[in-house]
């Protein structure tokens, strides 16, 4: 019994707080508090980092005396996330953002108990009077990247390193393939999934498998892509189109362009709405027309895309943004 108690004591002493970072805010009238739950680290160069930087920018603009934020990160599990969401609500946070499609059920449950608090989640479509959903139109930039990649490939083989076939990833991949087909249907797209959002080593091996099968331009989504980008940068003449944030610092000689989500504008919209008394009830779209999606080309590889091709790309981009080119979504 003593041994068991000692073991439990060790577990209790070692565990708390180490896997999670962040802190609690104290209730203080006049200060807007934003709680953020992230599925991975706030420095993942991908999905979580984008939102973290967006909220940070909004809070910085408002000033420390007017707004505060707290972050709970590395919580891929919806059950753990549910506890964090409720904890923020109990502490008096005004806006709680659960940044992942997997958080929908716990978020809906907690939101019903705190009607004065604004909740937000995405990629998602479910809303209520105090819930915002946000929906990045990942397929739009992906279509344009697919179109461009099909024009640039030498081997006529492209690769998609996917995490799991769901949410943002499937929309992105669907759009990329449509872009390739629109530009050159004879170009082959290899599409595969690691089964994990965060296994970088597996993503690296998957990218190697694509390169081994002659793919010379690859793309992919989620925080796992750091590994895939490593594989790409190890191979001369192989390039990458990025998603979520501008990932070109990771591999300046390999990343042609990134589809970057402007989370700052999304968060600012939710803050303004909350302060105006609108707590939710809307699906916030991130797309090319509202400039919440930006296509950022890596200046280091600017010479890789000829001027005439870039001009065609800009024309296509305008068509996609205006709806003249319809990019379908998975059914």
């Amino acid at each position: 019994m003593k041994k068991l108690l000692f073991s439990l004591l060790v577990l209790v002493l070692l565990a708390p707080g180490l896997a999670f970072a962040g802190g609690a805010a104290e209730v203080d009238d006049g200060v807007l508090r934003i709680g953020v739950i992230l599925p991975s680290g706030r420095d993942d160069m991908s999905w979580s980092q984008g939102m973290y930087e967006g909220v940070s920018a909004v809070v910085a603009n408002m000033g420390a005396g007017n707004a505060q934020m707290a972050v709970t990160e590395n919580v891929p599990n919806p059950v753990d996330a549910g506890a964090a969401i409720r904890d923020y609500a109990n502490q008096g946070f005004n806006i709680i953002i659960a940044h992942g499609s997997q958080y929908q059920n716990p978020l809906m449950e907690v939101a019903a108990d705190f009607p004065e608090v604004t909740f937000a989640h995405g990629t998602a479509f479910e809303t209520s009077s105090n819930i915002f959903a946000y929906d990045p139109q990942a397929q739009l930039g992906a279509y344009l990247f697919g179109w461009l990649a099909a024009q640039m490939t030498n081997s006529q083989v492209l690769g998609i390193v996917g995490p799991v076939r769901a949410g943002d990833a499937i929309k992105y991949n669907y759009g990329f393939i449509q872009g390739v087909e629109a530009a050159n249907p004879s170009v082959r797209v290899l599409e595969s999934y690691t089964g994990s959002f965060g296994d970088n080593i597996q993503a690296k091996e998957m990218a190697e498998a694509h390169i081994n099968a002659r793919a010379d331009i690859l793309t992919g989504t989620a925080q796992q892509v750091v590994g895939a980008i490593q594989a790409v940068s190890e191979n001369d003449g192989v390039y990458w189109f990025a998603n979520d944030t501008d990932q070109s610092p990771l591999a300046p000689n390999s990343i042609i362009a990134s589809q970057a989500y402007s989370w700052e504008t999304v968060v600012q919209y939710m803050v303004d709405s909350h302060m105006a008394g609108k707590l939710g009830g809307e699906i916030i779209s991130l797309d090319l027309t509202n400039e919440r999606i930006q296509l950022v080309f890596n200046p280091v590889l600017a010479d890789l895309v000829p001027a005439d091709l870039m001009a065609q790309f800009e024309s296509k981009k305008a068509d996609v943004a205006s709806g003249a080119i319809q990019v379908r979504l998975p059914e």
Binding site: S7, L14, A15, A19, G41
Partner: peptide, 19 residues
């Protein structure tokens, strides 16, 4: 200590400390 439980503690310690 019961090795299974203390091992989980070491795992969480490593996960937390490395991050």
């Amino acid at each position: 200590a019961v090795q299974g439980i203390s091992g989980i503690g070491i795992h969480i310690l490593g996960l937390g400390l490395s991050g």
